[in-house]
């Protein structure tokens, strides 16, 4: 099996996953998001003076992030387990498809769905921004960087959901993934705590701080809301970090799934 064929199969599985999410009306959340954002923009326009932009960017990007994380967790935990329960996997794996190709294909399918989702939600944020500020400003370009970091967060969350679901129940997988998302958002505090703690406690805190995904570094919402720029080096580091972390989680999921009996 050459790499072109492998790539094609991963692509087919990813596209089918994307199509399933679209037809299961996952993207309907966009309507809820659009309504929320339009309402918020009108409200902000009414009550805030001079800080409309700050409020809309903060509110908009936080909503993009939360909506996306919820979708990533709830679809991610069922990506493989649903296929085992419904036995749709049997007819896929009885073809020249390797188990790892299936897992990777499902991952790309979900992240693809989330990228499309984020694109439309980002449009909503920019429209709300134009509504309250009546124009675009050069600093709005950093909103794009914040959105890119949010997508990187989705990559990690999807990979974690897939990893946990490869060995535990959907409910436990959702709890583990969400817990890691929350802890990961506090990872800077955890690292700070590790620095000031010595002995065994310090070592444990350091290990945990570096093991949990560093979502703090991927959260620049407040920074861009204030119009502060995002350094190019941070974009580079965050990209490398998110890709590496996701790849490790996916590899773990693959290693477990490769040995799993599909009863």
């Amino acid at each position: 099996m050459n790499s072109n064929v492998t790539g094609a199969r991963i692509g087919y599985i990813a596209f089918n996953t994307f199509r399933e999410a679209v037809r299961d009306r996952v993207l309907y959340n966009l309507i809820a998001f659009a309504l929320l954002l339009s309402g918020a923009a009108i409200l902000v326009g009414e009550i805030s003076i001079d800080i409309e932009r700050l409020v809309v960017v903060n509110l908009g990007l936080t909503a993009v992030s939360l909506f996306g994380v919820v979708i990533a967790i709830f679809i991610g935990i069922g990506l493989v387990s649903k296929e085992i329960d419904k036995r749709t996997l049997y007819t896929v794996l009885s073809r020249p498809v390797r188990r790892w190709e299936f897992v990777v294909g499902k991952f790309f399918g979900l992240t693809g769905t989330l990228v499309v989702n984020t694109f439309f939600m980002a449009l909503g944020v920019f429209l709300a921004l134009v509504y309250v500020a009546h124009k675009f400003e050069p600093m709005d370009v950093w909103v794009l960087a914040a959105l890119y970091f949010i997508v990187l967060q989705f990559f990690i969350v999807c990979a974690l959901a897939l990893f946990f679901s490869s060995f535990s129940t959907p409910l436990m997988s959702a709890i583990f993934t969400f817990a890691l998302f929350v802890i990961g958002n506090l990872s800077e505090d955890l690292r700070g705590f590790a620095r000031v703690t010595s002995g065994l406690g310090g070592a444990v805190a350091t290990a945990i701080a570096y093991m949990v995904p560093n979502f703090s570094a991927l959260n620049v919402i407040s920074q861009v809301a204030h119009g502060d720029p995002v350094p190019g080096r941070l974009i580079l580091y965050n990209t490398a970090y998110a890709l590496l972390y996701s790849a490790m989680a996916i590899s773990g999921a693959v290693l477990i799934f490769q040995r799993r009996n599909l009863k």
Binding site: N16, R19, D24, K86, R87, T88, Y90, S94
Partner: peptide
């Protein structure tokens, strides 16, 4: 391969 009581992707 045809599995017993097959179930397929019902969105397709």
């Amino acid at each position: 391969f045809l599995p017993e009581q097959p179930y397929f992707y019902d969105h397709l």
